[in-house]
Design a binder for these strands. Structure first.
Length: 571
RNA sequence: CGGGGUGUGGCGCAGUUGGCAGCGCGCAGCGUUUGGGACGCUGAAGUCGGAGGUUCAAGUCCUCUCACCCCGACCA
């Protein structure tokens, strides 16, 4: 491809709305352009990278017996009603709905469990057809409340989604690690250092899942690691050892004055106790406005995702002052004692000791010696605590650390959630109808591309891994008005194409600085320069994008030199 | 949904007490230049996000509205 006719331009300045490096560089290098919030076009350079990634995905999915299919982007509402997700609080408004001319309710698919399960219902009827794996690379639409960071969080995006079907759990348990390994291969082959962590399965449901995370300080997800035993989990799902509070004989509850002490820290300091000896009341409101009373030990924080999960995946928000007043609660002094008309959810830490200090639901007063069971009860008791840096590992007692990251892939054991809803059954060896056991596996392509840029760039621009670079060779002609050099560059372009290289040929009438800067910005692995200076030596200049040094290579050794660079990338 | 910020040629920005809408880059033409974002001359390109209002006069002041960006979706 010739730079003179490329349908894209590079930008010298950083677009004012681009915050993340990958966003800035993918705009400046002419990979993508924005159409609307979270909706982007891919220009030729960007699409070539996407195509390379797709090829790797196909190879790895085929290697785990996947068969590529293509499902529709537009789905009738009925298939989403069948699984309950059309009306469920999650995904809720993220599922874009509209009606067609016949006034039929439709959606833009944000994932394809519904459709693929419906397909399986039609195509699979016997255990002899199992296990089976299908996948597609296709556009998804999720009406996110807030997209950000260029391709990192968008509304319309390309996803590789795969679905496996099994006759029993043993089969899924045996297959799942194969996909897990395939995913590790995919990220490694794309030059991305992604770590696998235990994850929350969110709106997908199911019994187990792992996320593949690209560590990045600008990431939206928080990870928790144990350096001792290698436990790693998304903070949304991470478990930890909460320890115990002081334990002793139950004492009588006692009202104490705590004037102007409204936070846990203030109350604990005022009473001369540790924060873990207190109970904290936190309030969330449902979409209906109903307040959920959450009680947790004073030194811990509520994990909103875990809380939402125990409430059936409902969307929650921190209660407003108005909502609290309407529920008769006194901010700063709220108490679980005597609450009867609200849904009370307690973290299991609330019973990790005895004689806690809690609010009295009366301004300026707290209770001493509050005890679960005797003084208050919760409708739901569960682990709803947020693991944080410094907490102790539930597996080995090590000290947990935190990191930020971007989710680039996610694998789930779905079980029978969808097959039962849709009636996707097969006959087992005994002729008995059983629901299909399912797994599902997703990778966001644009986000993967963005993460690779985040990981591989310098001040000058992108440094593509060879495996997904838009081209292999960036041929720069420094001809100026020298017709001889121009002809030599044309000849070399033809020669490299004939040799099978993917060549981007900068044949523009631009100065050297402009061309070199664009080459650095776009980030193609090998740069070959043709100039008068080189021609005098019957040579070309060759430079690897990731290296500082430039080499003068005799013409007859050029291909060997290019191959040496392409075959020995640093990542 | 809440808080903050920004809307002025394709991109990045300036525009004072209200008084002819500007600069840099890019783009087109001509000339010089030609190994790390050249120089000169000429030129094209903007309903100043939108609506309403104040005024002799509004990019600028007032009201409303829309869009986009960032932060928070948070422990009382």
């Amino acid at each position: 491809m010739r730079a003179s006719s490329l349908f894209a331009r590079t930008l010298r300045e950083i677009p004012s709305d681009a915050e993340m490096v990958s966003h800035q560089l993918s705009m400046r290098a002419g990979l993508i352009r924005r159409l609307a919030v979270g909706i982007y076009s891919y220009l030729p350079m960007g699409l070539r990278v996407i195509n390379k990634i797709e090829q790797i995905l196909r190879e790895e999915m085929d290697a785990v017996d996947g068969q590529e299919i293509q499902m529709p982007v537009v789905n009738p509402a009925e298939v989403w009603r069948a699984t309950g997700r059309y009306d469920a609080p999650a995904p809720g408004p993220a599922l874009l709905r509209f009606t067609d001319r016949g006034n039929h309710e439709m959606v833009l698919a944000m994932t394809h469990e519904e459709v693929v399960t419906d397909l399986a219902r039609q195509e699979i009827s016997s255990y002899k057809q199992l296990p089976a794996m299908v996948y597609q690379i296709q556009t998804k639409f999720r009406d996110e409340p807030r997209s950000r960071g260029g391709l990192v969080r968008v509304r319309e995006f390309l996803m590789k989604d795969g679905y496996s079907f099994h006759a029993d759990w043993e089969s899924l348990d045996a297959y799942y690690p194969r996909v897990y390994d395939a995913y590790k291969n995919i990220f490694r082959r794309c030059g991305l250092d992604a770590v696998a962590v235990e994850a929350d399965s969110g709106m997908m449901g199911g019994s187990g899942s792992h996320e593949f995370i690209s560590i990045n300080d600008s990431g939206e997800d928080t990870l928790v690691f144990c350096p001792t035993c290698r436990y790693a989990a998304n903070a949304e799902a991470a478990i930890f050892d909460k320890g115990t509070a002081q334990d002793g004989e139950l004492l009588d509850m006692e009202l104490v004055a705590t004037p102007n002490q409204t936070t846990i820290e203030q109350v604990a300091a005022f009473l001369g106790i540790e924060t873990r000896q207190t109970l904290k009341a936190v309030f969330y409101s449902r979409l209906s406005g109903e307040v959920v009373f959450v009680i947790i030990r004073g030194d811990l924080a509520v994990n909103e995702q875990k809380l939402s999960n125990v409430l059936g995946g409902e969307e929650l928000h921190a209660s407003t002052a108005e909502e609290l007043a309407a529920a008769g609660l006194v901010a700063g002094y709220a108490s679980p004692v005597g609450i009867s008309d609200l849904l009370v959810v307690a973290d299991d830490s609330a019973m990790s000791g005895t004689n806690f200090v809690g609010g009295a639901n009366k301004p300026g007063y707290h209770y001493l010696n509050v005890n679960y069971g005797r003084d208050f009860e919760a409708k739901i008791v569960a682990d709803i605590a947020l693991a944080r840096e410094g907490d102790h590992c539930a597996h080995c007692g090590g000290t947990l650390t935190e990191a930020r990251g971007i989710e680039v892939g996610h694998v789930f054991k779905l079980g029978t959630k969808y097959s039962e809803a849709v009636g996707a059954n097969f006959l087992d060896a005994d002729g008995v109808a059983q629901p299909l056991i399912m797994g599902c596996y997703g990778i966001g392509l644009g986000r993967l591309l963005a993460c690779v840029i985040e990981e591989h760039h310098d001040d000058q621009g992108i440094i593509w891994p060879v495996s997904i670079a838009p081209f292999q060779v960036h041929l720069v002609s420094l001809a100026g008005n020298n017709q001889e050099v121009a002809s030599a560059a044309e000849a070399l372009y033809a020669r490299l194409l004939a040799a099978g290289y993917e060549v981007f040929f900068d044949d523009r009438d631009e100065r050297a600085g402009v061309k070199f800067n664009d080459a650095d910005l776009i980030g193609i692995p090998v740069r070959v320069t043709v100039s008068k200076r080189m021609m005098d030596e019957s040579a070309f200049e060759v430079k690897a994008r990731w290296a500082d040094d430039r080499t003068t290579v005799p013409s007859d050794q050029l291909e060997a030199q290019i191959d040496a660079i392409l075959e020995n990338p640093p990542f």
